[in-house]
Amino acid sequence: MLKIAAYHSPTTLIEAAALLAEDGRTAIAGGTDLLVNPRYMVGVREVVDIRRLGLNYIRVENGWLYIGAGATMRTVAQRVELQGLANGILARGAAVCGSPNIRNMATLAGNIASALPSADTPPALLALDAEVVLVGMRGERVVPLDSFFVGPAKSVRERDLIRELRIPLAGSNALRGGFYKIGRTAEDISMVNAAATLKIQDGKISMARLVLGAVAPVPLRVSRAEEALVGQAATEETFQRVAEIVRDEVRPITDHRATAEYRRRISAVATVRALRQAAGLATPGEEWQHA
């Protein structure tokens, strides 16, 4: 039994934003993080259910893919629009979030709002240049996901509501992706995860994104590695070199899941494996896990 003084179930965004503008309130959708992790309930007395706002859409419009705040992980994992985008890296990230029951409840927006460094969807979203559309009393604002996360469980969201996430589709046909997760057991919170997107022209990498999870206070875009990829041939040698950069750039911690040293080491492995997938060089033997 949670100590909650009121449950609100608004039906319009304006109503929801107004409710959330008050102290001691938080938005709830799937509830799978919120209700089981006391850290999200500190100071919370009332909850605002956002599932009746009509936000459970995934749609393509004007060159953008929009994922509403109500869309569950399962929807994200199963929709063809997402399975076809950059080898389906976001769909695959969503498909390894928790268990099937959790994926039926948890939302993609909730995964972003929770802002945990080990989450499985932010790396793919960052690699796809996603943006977050926030709604508050002052109206709507669009924040690139790249500048959304501030620290563990901290973001620039404040009291705003995530209305949707959006991904630019321009040129996405040429986008190839990879995602690799390393957990302790088959179903686990990531010790390290990595997502990559590449555009390859005439054998050379023309664009690269490389993002790692659980190696820093926020999902880490490794710009130095991205720069090192561009202009290079998409080969094993290039990837190994980039992995060394990643090894230097990550700032992991030691916790009860893994030591910093181990995370640093496997961040290089996850990098290479994600890049190999993106370049179509992955060997099946590596693909034990969901990646």
């Binding site: 302790r184 057991t185 088959a186 179903e187 686990d188 919170i189 009860h256 899941r257």
Partner: peptide, 11 residues
């Protein structure tokens, strides 16, 4: 169960 890992069907 999040961090005390028992085997699942997939393991």
């Amino acid at each position: 169960f999040v961090d005390y890992k028992v085997m699942s069907t997939l393991d």
